[in-house]
C-alpha cells in the first residue's frame, strides 16, 4: 500500500495480509476484464468465420449473380446461386408472423398495462413468456402436424408444407417478445401523464392510445424490431413446416425454403468440407447476419433512447 509513510507502525503480518489482498484484487480484476472482453472474441469469431468461408464462395459466384439471379439450385448439374428465392421465403414467413404478433402483442401489452388488474398482470405476463421458452422444434411439430392439417380443412388444395402454417405459429411464438417489452415501456410512463388525461375526461382506451402509446413509441418500436429480427432468424419452425424447396413466390399457400431452412437442409446432407455447397451456407449465413444486424442496431438505438426520456 503506497498510502502513507507509516508513522503508526502497522504490524508486519497485517501489512503482508493487506498487500496480499491487494494483489489478489488486481489479479481478479484482470481475469474479470478478460471474461468481459471474451464476449468480443465471440463476435470476432462469428464475423471472421462468415467472411472467411463465404469469401471462397464469392470468388466463384459473382456477388451480382448472387443478389439478382432468381434461381437457387446448388444441387443441379448446372447450379445457379441466386439468393432471391430464399429471401422471398424468409420475407413471406416473417410477414405472416408479424401480421399475428404485432397487433396481438400490442393489444396484449395495452391490455396488461392499462386495463388488467395487477394480480392478473403479474400472473399472465410470465405465463405468456413461456410461449417463447418452448423449444422451436416442438413448435415446428405443432405447425406441421396440428396447424397445417387444420388449415387444409379450411383451404382445399393446401399442401402439407406451406408458409402460412409456419408463419402463423412463428407469429404466436414471438407475441411475448412484442408484448413484454412494450408492456415494460408503457408501465414506465409516469402516472402524472395518465392522470392528466383522465382528469380531462378521457376514458382508458383514449388515454392508452393518445397518451401512453405515443409516450412509449420508441420502446414499442424496439420491441417490434426485436420481433422482426427473431422471425427472420427463426429456423426450425420453417425448416419443418414450410418445406425446403427454394421457391420464388409471395404466395403464403405454397411451400418455400427460407435462408435458415436452406442452411439446415444442406447441413443434414453429407457435407463435403470445402465444396462450393459447403461455402454456400456461409454465404446464406452472412446474408442473414447482415439482415438481423441491421435490425439489432436500430432496435438498440431505439431502446437506449427511450431510457433517456424521463
Amino acid at each position: 500500500m503506497e498510502m502513507a509513510p507509516q508513522t503508526t507502525a502497522v504490524p508486519r503480518p497485517v501489512a503482508a495480509r493487506i498487500s496480499l489482498a491487494l494483489v489478489v484484487d488486481r489479479l481478479i480484476r484482470i481475469l474479470l476484464f478478460l471474461a468481459a472482453a471474451s464476449s468480443v472474441l465471440i463476435t470476432v469469431g462469428i464475423v471472421f468465420t462468415l467472411f472467411y468461408e463465404s469469401a471462397v464462395f464469392f470468388r466463384q459466384v459473382a456477388l451480382l449473380e448472387f443478389l439478382t439471379d432468381t434461381m437457387w439450385t446448388p444441387l443441379f448439374a448446372n447450379p445457379r446461386y441466386g439468393i432471391l428465392p430464399l429471401i422471398s421465403g424468409t420475407l413471406v414467413t416473417t410477414f405472416i408472423a408479424l401480421c399475428v404478433a404485432l397487433p396481438v402483442g400490442t393489444i396484449v401489452a395495452i391490455y396488461l398495462s392499462q386495463f388488467a388488474p395487477t394480480v392478473v398482470r403479474e400472473v399472465l405476463k410470465p405465463v405468456l413468456e413461456l410461449l417463447s421458452a418452448v423449444p422451436t422444434v416442438v413448435f415446428g411439430y405443432f405447425a406441421l402436424l396440428f396447424v397445417s392439417p387444420l388449415l387444409q380443412k379450411l383451404i382445399p388444395g393446401l399442401p402439407a408444407f406451406n408458409m402460412l402454417a409456419a408463419g402463423l405459429v412463428m407469429g404466436i411464438m414471438i407475441i411475448p417478445y412484442v408484448s413484454s417489452l412494450s408492456e415494460d415501456v408503457m408501465g414506465a410512463v409516469p402516472m402524472l401523464l395518465r392522470e392528466g388525461s383522465y382528469a380531462m375526461g378521457a376514458n382508458r382506451l383514449r388515454t392508452a392510445l393518445r397518451v401512453v402509446v405515443p409516450a412509449s413509441l420508441s420502446g414499442i418500436g424496439a420491441a417490434y424490431i426485436l420481433a422482426i429480427s427473431r422471425a427472420v432468424g427463426e429456423t426450425m419452425i420453417v425448416a419443418i413446416a414450410a418445406g425446403m424447396q427454394p421457391n420464388l413466390t409471395l404466395n403464403p399457400l405454397e411451400g418455400a425454403a427460407t435462408v435458415t431452412a436452406y442452411i439446415v437442409q444442406v447441413s443434414l446432407g453429407d457435407l463435403p468440407h470445402g465444396s462450393l455447397e459447403y461455402h454456400s451456407i456461409f454465404a446464406a449465413g452472412i446474408t442473414l447476419f447482415f439482415m438481423t444486424l441491421g435490425f439489432n442496431i436500430v432496435g438498440y438505438i431505439l431502446r437506449t433512447r427511450y431510457r433517456e426520456f424521463y
Binding site: I42, I46, T260, V264, T292, F295
Partner: peptide, 15 residues
C-alpha cells in the same frame, strides 16, 4: 453483448 443476444442461433452454428 446486446448484439450477440440478437444474433440468430443458426449463425452460432455456422461459426
Amino acid at each position: 453483448i446486446a448484439n450477440l443476444a440478437g444474433v440468430p442461433s443458426i449463425i452460432y452454428g455456422l461459426m
